[in-house]
Amino acid sequence: MELALDIQNLQKKYADGTPALQGVSLQVPKGDFYALLGPNGAGKTTLIGIATGLVNKTGGSFKIDGIDFDAHPEKARRKVGVVPQNLNVDFFGKVIDIVVNQGGYYGIPRSVALPRAEALLTAVGLSDKRTTQARQLSGGMQRRLMIARALIHEPDLLFLDEPTAGVDIEMRRSMWDYLKTLTARGVTILLTTHYLEEAEQLAKHVAIINKGTIVADGTMDEILARYDEAQQQHKGYRGSRLEEVFLQLTREPEKPS
């Protein structure tokens, strides 16, 4: 099996001593739609930060499309696109410039990047906003802008860190439809989301991370097979099967009162 991302024993301890990742190993097959799930503070964003070169790791190694990131960071970075959790565009920049400039940082000349950016903006439904400043876009539009920006250099592996947070249902559905066309074209997607029904519908493989450790990973069917009706503790609201498995694996044991 060819791997788009191969992480071995990844560790991260922040300067204040907080252990964010404690020996995470993860294999993402090429062309997969892979969901990395976990509660807040589990280490998902740190993992993506390390894999995109934005966070320094304290141990372990990883390869992107077979390229060791430590040995060949420039080659590895070319393969990766990222849509971060927080909006990080130049709010005073024009939409088209933001996408084209991102191409420039990958060495793509404006003459090549411009038509590519136009096509991407059309694909994400922002072609009529091309000369609008990013600050004038809605939150959902800014997220779609970040998707277009992440794709300008045609990456093989796309990290999506909670890309639909705060996005309305209709826009979310159109985003997923577009992202599914990317995986159909061979782009590997690693997604983190708190909307587990999205992950259940979209992802072929799932990993669940909690407190910096992978507590479960496998195909979606394998993860869902861990659903155990007998372990249900809550009698009230019941979520999807993935939601229940997620809670079983990540829930803090109740302390005796």
Binding site: L54, V80, V82, P84, N101, Y105
Partner: peptide, 14 residues
């Protein structure tokens, strides 16, 4: 403020 330095930091720009 907007952390868009990451646009360059994720790229292969040395």
């Amino acid at each position: 403020f907007n952390r868009n330095i990451d646009e360059i930091l994720v790229s292969p720009t040395p």
